[in-house]
């Protein structure tokens, strides 16, 4: 190959070498079989060539052992690839417990990233080196897909639900961030960069600029403004359930089904509250569709996560500083 043409993207996350090793293996296996067949075909084509078109071939009709052999051997080889690839996949989709969370919304044609501490950025994402980062995102309009080739991660942004990707950056620098799902006119302009920084530089970046208000604090503000506080009383005596310590636990629904209180459930409960009622509560909550935007919903989720497990007034600031143990810790220790 001509030097200067890159063949592989940079390996800038802990996942990247895993994916690349699998890629090299599958490349080696498939190249072997491709070459085998090509060589066999070419050798036979030349060796048994008949320029006249008058001769006939040998009366060979097949061979059961060969048929079984070239069905079973490829099957086992493909199962080996399947097993390895599935293991890698589960590493890609299962985030570790302790992640630094960033929220994002895709919208034609930009990505907006919202850090827990309050900073928001467009088409740029600043993250610290060496820490597992989880980006939780949705779309405000059509399908998009958040793709960071250097980290080998991708997931579609789907309106109406949350997706997430996670990665641990292993290299300081700037990396591509693409929209991979076609979304209309400026699809190819819906790109940006991920900036991986040394942890101390990242801290400096975090403290400069930003709105000064954390997502949880912004969520608490919305919780008051939208009147949620009138029903979701902390002591559980309101018309709606108390939200204290609810994030991450299993809850029984009116239908008898159980559900894990996660980002998606909180979002659904705000936008389509009648859909999955908690057992013991009536269908009295109105929808907040149109009253709160995606970023507002994300702030409310972050607020719910920040609530302490039992009693006491909600203390967003305290929670976001210390990291609530019940919720996936936003800024918890690594």
């Amino acid at each position: 190959m001509v030097s200067g043409i890159p063949l592989f993207p940079e390996q800038a996350s802990t996942l990247a070498p895993e994916v690349d090793n699998l890629y090299f293996f599958v490349t080696a296996v498939t190249a072997f079989f491709a070459l085998l067949v090509v060589v066999v075909v070419l050798v036979f084509a030349v060796k048994y060539r008949d320029r006249t078109g008058e001769k006939v071939g040998a009366p060979i009709h097949g061979s059961l052992p060969l048929e079984l052999g070239w069905s079973i051997i490829p099957f086992f080889i493909s199962m080996a690839i399947f097993a390895w690839a599935t293991l890698v996949f589960f590493h890609i989709v299962r985030a570790p417990d302790q992640t630094l969370e960033v929220y994002s919304t895709g919208k034609r044609w930009m990505w907006r990233f919202q850090h827990i501490d309050g900073q928001a950025e467009i088409n740029e994402l600043h993250v610290p080196l060496g820490r597992p980062i989880r980006v939780i995102f949705t779309s405000e309009d059509v399908l998009h897909s958040l793709y960071m080739p250097a980290f080998r991660v991708k997931a579609d942004a789907i309106p109406g639900r949350y997706s997430s990707i996670w990665f641990t950056p292993t290299q300081v620098g700037e990396f591509h961030l693409f929209c991979a799902e076609y979304c209309g006119t400026r699809h190819s302009g819906m790109i940006g960069r991920v900036v991986v920084m040394e942890p101390n530089e990242y801290q400096a970046w975090l403290s400069g600029g930003g709105s000064g208000m954390s997502m949880a604090a912004r969520g608490e503000q919305l919780f008051q403004q939208l009147g949620c506080v009138g029903c979701h009383l902390p002591d559980g005596s309101g018309r709606g359930p108390s939200l204290l310590g609810k994030y991450g636990i299993q809850e029984t629904l009116a239908t008898g089904a159980t559900v894990t209180i996660d980002d998606t459930y909180v979002r659904e409960s705000i936008l389509t509250p009648q859909m999955k009622l908690v057992a013991g509560y009536g269908p009295v909550m109105p929808t907040f569709q149109g009253l709160v935007n995606e970023q507002g919903v994300m702030s409310l989720i972050e607020y719910v996560k920040s609530l302490p497990r039992t009693g006491g007034p909600p203390a967003a600031a305290q929670a976001s500083a210390a990291g609530a143990p019940a919720a996936a810790p936003a800024q918890g220790p690594r």
Binding site: E18, V19, L22, Y23, V26, V29, T30, S78, I81, F82, W84, A85, T86, L87, V88, F89, H91, I92, S145, Y147, P149, R152, V153, K154, A155, A180, E181
Partner: peptide, 15 residues
């Protein structure tokens, strides 16, 4: 086979 491999398809899908 690359695309049927889950761990590779995440990176390769839509490219």
């Amino acid at each position: 086979l690359f695309l049927a491999s889950l761990g590779l398809d995440v990176h390769l899908h839509d490219t």
